[in-house]
Computed example of a mutant assay.
Amino acid sequence: MPIFLQFHAKPEMMIIRTLPPKIIDLDFSGVDFPLPDPVQVASNLNVMYRQMVTANYPTLFLGRPYRAGDEPEPGAGSLEDVPHTTVHIWTGDADQANRENMGVFYAAARDPIFFSHIMGISTGCGRYGRNYQLRYEFQDVASPWINARPKPKPNKQKPKVAVATADPTKPIGLLNKTVSVVVERPNQRRSTKPKEVEVLVIERIEYRIDMYVKFNVLINDEPETPGKPDSAEFAGTFVNVPHGRNKTVKTSLRLGISLSYWRI
């Protein structure tokens, strides 16, 4: 049974934000939308559910193995991409020479949010690591995201145009616009409580490390009105914090789609 994929590229670094006090957007895409605080909080909880619960396999959560001799970017884990990287972007200032996004050593620790941000990410890793009997543990705090499972969009329309089936041996192309493809899947029976994790793999993502890069991946969604992070169709995100010099690297993105696809 095939799945319908959409890749929504985001514009280059274009930070447009309201002044504080402001509720943080954990899936920040360069522009702050004036959402009411309760709506933004609910969306953030949906994001955390996806990054913590849907990534229910070690290489999805922790990232790909990185061994001596490997290429420098084998593929980040779910929490590393979002909200770790997106919060870096959210705190940044595109008008500054080095963007001041906690991505350069001289300025990172001078930002008041830096330590709480890193500790928040470490706490998430610690919660995941409980299953692996680590020799330390963070203070037990409430996790309101644990039940914040995103819901499918109601009254969803089918695509109005025909979409080509993806060829795994060929690149999708330059992501400077929305790209839609159909991916074939093995025709086998799947239960609503699968024992195995179904993973969507996007390989050979090529980008410059000194540029802001972000694209979202959606499954079986409407091309004309793409879902937001609070919808089940929103499978995940790839994002890069601009830093360093002009250098092109290749990486991969792996998204656990078992918990989202069966709800769509």
Results as ranks from 00 to 15, higher is better:
residue 148 A to P: 02
residue 223 P to F: 13
residue 116 S to P: 02
residue 33 F to I: 00
residue 238 F to Y: 13
residue 166 A to H: 08
residue 153 K to I: 07
residue 48 M to V: 01
residue 38 P to D: 03
residue 192 T to P: 01
residue 49 Y to Q: 01
residue 56 N to D: 14
residue 147 N to D: 08
residue 120 G to S: 06
residue 125 C to V: 11
residue 187 N to V: 09
residue 12 E to N: 13
residue 245 R to Y: 03
residue 190 R to D: 03
residue 69 G to W: 05
residue 201 V to C: 14
residue 136 Y to D: 07
residue 253 L to Q: 12
residue 259 L to S: 04
residue 205 I to V: 15
residue 231 S to H: 02
residue 248 T to R: 15
residue 102 M to C: 14
residue 95 D to C: 03
residue 5 L to V: 02
residue 154 P to K: 04
residue 21 P to D: 01
residue 181 V to I: 10
residue 155 N to M: 11
residue 120 G to E: 00
residue 203 E to Q: 15
residue 25 D to G: 03
residue 255 L to G: 05
residue 14 M to V: 12
residue 244 G to R: 05
residue 120 G to F: 03
residue 232 A to I: 04
residue 240 N to I: 14
residue 8 H to Q: 15
residue 163 V to Y: 05
residue 163 V to P: 05
residue 71 E to K: 11
residue 2 P to W: 01
residue 193 K to S: 10
residue 241 V to W: 00
residue 85 T to H: 15
residue 147 N to G: 06
residue 46 N to A: 11
residue 153 K to D: 08
residue 154 P to A: 00
residue 56 N to M: 08
residue 115 F to A: 02
residue 98 N to V: 04
residue 46 N to F: 02
residue 154 P to H: 05
residue 61 F to E: 04
residue 250 K to E: 12
residue 214 K to E: 10
residue 7 F to M: 06
residue 2 P to Q: 02
residue 17 R to H: 00
residue 59 T to C: 08
residue 40 Q to N: 05
residue 30 G to E: 03
residue 114 F to S: 00
residue 82 V to Q: 06
residue 49 Y to C: 01
residue 75 G to K: 01
residue 141 V to W: 14
residue 251 T to A: 07
residue 110 R to S: 10
residue 147 N to S: 07
residue 108 A to R: 14
residue 179 V to K: 14
residue 84 H to C: 15
residue 19 L to R: 04
residue 250 K to W: 10
residue 137 E to R: 11
residue 12 E to W: 12
residue 157 Q to A: 12
residue 211 M to R: 15
residue 215 F to D: 13
residue 39 V to S: 12
residue 174 L to H: 00
residue 174 L to Y: 03
residue 18 T to A: 09
residue 95 D to M: 06
residue 158 K to M: 10
residue 66 Y to G: 08
residue 139 Q to H: 09
residue 237 T to A: 08
residue 236 G to V: 03
residue 99 R to K: 11
residue 55 A to L: 08
residue 114 F to I: 06
residue 39 V to G: 04
residue 211 M to K: 15
residue 119 M to S: 15
residue 2 P to V: 02
residue 222 E to R: 09
residue 182 V to S: 08
residue 43 S to H: 11
residue 7 F to I: 07
residue 144 P to I: 11
residue 3 I to V: 13
residue 87 V to S: 09
residue 47 V to L: 12
residue 226 P to M: 01
residue 50 R to I: 01
residue 9 A to E: 09
residue 136 Y to L: 10
residue 264 I to S: 14
residue 29 S to F: 12
residue 159 P to R: 02
residue 189 R to D: 11
residue 71 E to S: 08
residue 125 C to E: 12
residue 105 F to H: 12
residue 90 W to I: 04
